[in-house]
Design a protein around this nucleic acid. Structure first.
Lengths: 255, 255
DNA sequence: GAGTGGTCTAGACCACTGA
DNA sequence: CAGTGGTCTAGACCACTCG
């Protein structure tokens, strides 16, 4: 849909800075992002076919294709030939948690058991508030848990969530839920994590970490601070993980 | 170029397993990969224009475009509107080393100073040989060095390279060279790193690591084991790095 | 202005899925 | 079989770079 006018004049040159031109397919992409954000299309469901979208936006199929291409490259959509295009979801990733890059040194990944330590409402510490774009002392929910692989604890996570977005999140809700936590966030709270940044460090285990991971205090651990974003790059989770890398490693691919 | 026949019969269905169909643009991609691998097109140089390639391969411009799209998505090629398409290079990445994900906690990245510790030829230890697909005891070159940020040492690297590929690599060559080491590998040895896998762990500094990084032994350090590949996914470098993450962190983006 | 990559279209046909 | 995404083409035009 030539949203306002023919392509070449869609975005008139701006004084100062910023992109001076936005192609049609990128405007379609913005419209589709809106449909995703407003949950017109929900995680796991299929979106309209390419021809339907082309008709809706009054654009050729090739143009919506290019918009979908980009959204698929960003892992917001998933194409399945012959079936349709689907909204990405964290819900049914049987194998492994989508954002968890920890791999056993040998053997298959997956098979992590969760143990919930606690889940309580508190006021956001300054650093958490800053990371989540909250005011200091805004209410947050802190979830603490341990992941175990073959009965030995490997990951100790502290998770902070803005209480305003996760009303009604309780230890019981978490304990009852099967599947990835991000799947619960999608279905129960309408919060869809689409991107995250991680900062990784090596630290020495403190008393609490050592106890929960069954290690000697001072053992080197991987500290993984993750900030997860929804649509519009709005941060909605801060997670501090301690990983025991004695028989696991964090895997990353560069190109 | 319908390499053997019309598109639909290009790859006849195979008994057993494997992809049963390879679209034309992917065959073009393979041909272009060959031109890259055989250094018909060299790092930093431009490749022929899309219309030229379309003519060469007897294919429409849209089809070579799709092949280039994929190669660009894999960071093998770089498109520059109005100028042409260029072979990616590690040579002139002024800012930062392309594969180095270490960032200062505050301030701008880059500005790392190198200090070469030594560079010697030796026989490949078993684990190194395995990682590089060499026979045990095949000759390798081991480079040891330290990277410093604002005069304090931050990274201690041990780098193993197959001696057969890097004949004539000496401490002097390394010391004289300006710019990223991978740039030297490209220009002097024709080895172009296109991809790498990293395994990250937390470890305690041993005596050597502690000395070179000016830390107390036992300090937690990030251990980063990198295996770098050239064309055809052939491993050509094993690198073991120890990172002091007191005021730096390893950064990763998930999606 | 000539040459490059980038966008958009319209139409034909192919591969895959599921009823 | 109809409907989906995937491929390929040919042509027109736009944005950018540089001489």
């Amino acid at each position: 849909m030539p949203v306002t006018a023919p392509p070449s004049t869609v975005t008139p040159p701006e004084a100062g800075a910023g992109p001076t031109f936005s192609p049609l397919y990128r405007q379609i992409k913005v419209l589709m992002l809106r449909s995703l954000q407003q949950t017109e299309w929900r995680p796991g469901e299929s979106i309209p076919s390419e021809v339907e979208l082309a008709a809706r936006f009054k654009v050729s199929q090739g143009t919506v294709r290019k918009a979908i291409d980009e959204l698929a490259a960003e892992n917001l959509l998933v194409r399945r030939q012959g079936k349709g295009t689907f909204v990405a979801t964290h819900a049914q990733e049987h194998v492994q948690f989508r954002f968890l890059r920890l791999m056993p040194d040998s053997g298959e990944p997956g098979g992590m058991a969760r143990r919930l330590i606690d889940c309580k409402r508190q006021r956001a510490p300054a650093d958490v508030a800053r990371a989540l774009n909250l005011a200091p002392n805004d209410p947050v929910i802190r979830v603490r848990r341990v992941l175990s692989f073959r009965a030995s604890p490997v990951v100790f996570d502290d998770i902070w969530l803005p209480a305003a977005l996760f009303k009604g999140l309780t230890a019981q809700r978490l304990a009852e839920h099967r599947g990835p936590m991000y799947g619960l966030f999608e279905s129960e709270f309408g919060v869809h994590m689409i991107r995250a940044e991680e900062k990784i460090r090596a630290v020495a285990a403190d008393a609490a970490g050592a106890r929960l991971l069954a290690l000697a205090p001072g053992t080197p651990l991987l500290s993984v601070e993750r900030r997860s974003m929804t649509y519009g790059d709005v941060p909605v989770e801060l997670r501090r993980g301690l990983y025991n890398t004695a028989s696991h490693h964090y895997r990353n691919d560069l190109s």
